[in-house]
Amino acid sequence: MEQIIDIVLLAFMVVTAIAMIRLRNLFAVVMLSGIFSLLSAAMFVVLDAVDVAFTEAAVGAGISTVLMLGTLALTFRDERPATRADWPAMLVVTVTGAALIYGTLDMPRFGDPDAPIHQHVAPRYIVDSPREVGPPNMVTSVLASYRGYDTLGETTVIFTAGIGVMVLLGSVTRRRRRARPTTPATPAAPAPPEGRP
């Protein structure tokens, strides 16, 4: 039963991704990316990674969608139809994909309990973490204790990204406010050659 749900959900994800590539209306694409994130969250539940599932549902489907909608509000709703041939990209993608699929033939089969990934540190986390750290949830123990420095690094990355976004967008709003009484566009930015909506 689990296997069937797994197959169907992954097939849905592929369909959603292809629809996202083909659609030119960016609003629809953003909505589909929310659906894509929710499908992946459902997939994580099927694969027993519940912590990842609710983070993906909250952050991937929630915050990412809001960020993208905000960007659309500040930029354009539509993407211009392609002007150049896309067969070189198709070729690159097909060759890379084929090489990667060839690489998977040596991977341990799905759900194999003897796979190398389960042999090294994972048993220690599973057996000892409830006693050594305390919380019954092993993911929490590893995140906050065994690999706490990773989480610290993650926080640093978010902090840096936050500063970057503030620096980039702060100047945008300031220039807008300053430019409003006089000419709207900055002198270095002439209008694009083809008029866009």
């Binding site: 990674a49 990934i117 993911v139 590893v142 995140l143 990773d150 993650e154």
Partner: peptide, 11 residues
């Protein structure tokens, strides 16, 4: 299931 991939992917 292995908790380590979950932790890495949360990050």
């Amino acid at each position: 299931t292995n908790p380590l991939p979950s932790v890495l992917i949360l990050t």
